[in-house]
Computed example of a mutant assay.
Amino acid sequence: MAAKIRKGDNVIVITGRHKGRTGEVIEVRPSEARALVRGVNLVKRHTKQTAQQEGGIISKEAPIHLSNLSLLHPTDKKPTRVGFKMVGDKKVRVAKRGGVEIDG
């Protein structure tokens, strides 16, 4: 199945503790149905100092479920669902709000 949310997309959180926050997708984990979004769902990790990195309390993004995310429309920056259509022999993503091609 084609991915509706991909790395580099701008998304908005539609439910949960971080509702309304927006950010760029850093990583998508399809097997877990989760994604990492920059600046959303930050957690603190207490890490021990090593030769490569400094220790202390580090903030980093935790994965958030894909069902809690919605793609931001490219022009009006509102949440939109994603559909697909064929353009020539390529399958492209299309925003359901307005029918604008997202990539392609």
Rank of each mutant, 00 (worst) to 15 (best):
G83Q: 07
K4V: 05
F84Y: 08
V13Y: 12
N10R: 15
T50F: 13
R45Y: 14
E54C: 09
I14R: 02
V25G: 01
P30T: 04
V43H: 11
K91L: 14
V28I: 15
A51F: 12
K96G: 03
S67Q: 08
R6T: 12
R38H: 11
A3G: 13
I102G: 00
A3H: 09
H46Q: 09
L42Q: 14
E27F: 12
K48D: 08
R81P: 01
R34D: 06
K48Y: 11
V11R: 00
E32D: 11
N41E: 10
H65M: 07
Q49M: 15
G20S: 10
R81I: 03
V37R: 05
T47A: 13
Q53D: 14
M86Q: 13
R97P: 00
G20V: 03
A3S: 14
V13A: 01
R34I: 07
K90I: 05
V100Q: 05
F84H: 04
K60I: 00
I102N: 09
P63S: 09
L42S: 14
T47F: 10
P30L: 05
K60E: 10
G8L: 05
A35E: 04
R34S: 06
K91V: 04
T22P: 03
V82P: 02
V94C: 04
L36G: 06
V94W: 02
Q49E: 12
M86G: 08
H18V: 03
K7R: 12
P63C: 08
K48T: 15
D76G: 01
E32W: 02
I14Q: 07
S67I: 02
S31D: 15
V87Y: 07
N68E: 11
R17W: 06
G83I: 01
V37E: 02
H46M: 07
R6Q: 08
E27N: 12
I5M: 03
P30F: 08
R17E: 15
R17F: 09
Q53L: 08
I57P: 04
H73E: 00
S59K: 14
G55V: 07
A2S: 13
E61P: 05
D103L: 07
D9H: 06
I26C: 08
V13Q: 03
G88Y: 11
G56V: 04
S59N: 12
G23D: 01
K60D: 09
I64W: 01
